[in-house]
Structure formats: C-alpha cells, structure tokens
C-alpha cells in the first residue's frame, strides 16, 4: 500500500521533472533530453565525407545503418579538439533520423525540476539561443540545455536537406 502511494507520488513528480543526459565539451557542461538519446558508443571508424563542413566528421556504420557524425566541439569553436579513449559519441534520434554527436565525455543523468530551468538569455553568436531550451542550475553548476532537435535540423548544421532551402 505504502509502496503504491510512493510510486504514484513519483509518477506525479516525473510529469514535471525532466531527465537530461549531461556531457562536457571542454570545461562547459551541456545537457540534452534523455529521451532523444539512443545509445552511447566510442568514437571509431568514421569515414570522411568530402566537401562537407569541418564539424561533420563523416559517417559511420551503426549496425548496418549509415549515421553521420557531428563534432559539437568544432561546431562550438572549442580550442582543444582531441580524439582519445574518453571521446564518446552520443547517438540521438531527431525525428526519423539518427545522428551521432562527438563530445569530450558523458558525465551523468540529471533530473531537473521546472524551477531549476531558467530561460536562456538572448546572446550567443556561435550558439544561438534558438537552439537552447534553457539553462539548468544545479547547486553551483550550470548546464546548457540544448534543444538537439532544433540544433541538428537547422540549416547551419547542413545535416538535413531542406526542400527549397536554396530559394
């Protein structure tokens, strides 16, 4: 009986609380909606694609599916871009598409209550606030909450061919 009410209470909080996957790019901490994440894997075996922007590292084989790999560190103009044992690829689902994003490390999964999510200020030349769903504050940490859907389907990512985008 007790357990039952616990579960119910938890379910109620779950509705308003959202879970995020936290990853780091350099010294900065970013987070994306965990429901978008399909899997996390190592960075390996990426086939380069000619004449593509530098942040598109190429494509890789994910169990028979060809998946593009985007390095967010290059996209966000980070100074140090290294590929090592810690470098991981977060495979995300954007609409019907599967895309891998390269990050320095994945740290943990955080649950944020609505009052912990602050609106993103209007700034950002490199990262337009259009692609942010807010800033998460957690004790003394700040998480940049990225709207991965909007970011990856945006024109500047050149990942998706928009019908009539050239017009």
């Amino acid at each position: 009986m007790n357990q039952h009410t616990d579960l119910a209470a938890q379910a109620a909080t779950d509705l308003s609380h959202r879970e995020f996957l936290v990853f780091s790019l350099g010294d900065e901490e970013y987070a994306i909606d965990i429901l978008k994440v399909q899997e996390i894997r190592g960075y390996e075996n990426v086939t380069r694609i000619a004449n593509a922007p530098a942040f598109i590292k190429g494509v890789t084989n994910l169990r028979g599916v060809i998946v593009p790999i985007v390095d967010l560190r290059i996209k966000f103009h980070l100074e140090r871009v290294e590929y090592g044992g810690q470098t991981v690829v977060i495979v995300v689902n954007v609409g019907t598409r599967v895309v891998g994003i390269v990050v320095d490390a994945v740290s943990d999964v955080m649950t944020l209550a609505p009052d912990q999510i602050k609106p993103a200020p209007e700034f950002g030349v490199t990262l337009s606030s259009d692609y942010l769903s807010g800033l998460g504050s957690l004790d003394d940490r700040m998480l940049v909450l990225v709207d991965i859907d909007k970011l990856l389907t945006s024109d500047e990512m050149a990942l998706v061919e928009h019908a009539g985008a050239s017009a």
């Binding site: 694609i49 000619a50 060809i66």
Partner: peptide
C-alpha cells in the same frame, strides 16, 4: 545504403 536517410546528398 542510402546516405540521405540520416544525412543528405553528397
């Protein structure tokens, strides 16, 4: 394998 499924025409 189609590249356009998850990426775009190259």
């Amino acid at each position: 394998k189609n590249l356009e499924t998850n990426y775009r025409r190259v």
